[in-house]
């Protein structure tokens, strides 16, 4: 899968968010808040094909975390991206 990098990460009141506008109706707008790890992953994976394994590798290289835990976190993160429609499969 790939990130929809046409969405820009913006700083709002010191926090990082993605503002996803609806196509025609303004009611469709959603705001996705990214914590520092999430934002770091977003930067690392821009324009790259990735899966849960690759995300887990990035996490274990950067943070003190076992591969199993990282893989669980990676799956959760990808699940969040899917729900927010921020990835193309």
């Amino acid at each position: 899968m790939k990130l929809k990098t046409n969405y820009k990460v913006r700083k709002i009141a010191g926090e990082s968010v993605i503002v996803r506008m609806g196509t025609q109706s303004v009611n469709m707008t959603s705001i996705i808040s990214l914590n520092p790890t999430s934002e770091w992953l977003w930067e690392q994976l821009a324009d790259e094909e990735f899966d849960a394994e690759k995300v887990a590798d990035l996490l274990t290289a950067e943070y003190e975390v076992s591969h199993d835990v990282a893989l669980l976190d990676a799956a959760k993160w990808i699940d969040m991206l899917r729900k927010a429609e921020l990835v193309v499969e």
Partner: peptide
């Protein structure tokens, strides 16, 4: 704060979003 941003954004001019 982020919820405040979400509350105000829809009240700005849609054409400029």
């Amino acid at each position: 704060r982020i919820a405040s941003f979400g509350a105000l954004l829809p009240s700005t001019l849609p054409t400029l979003q």
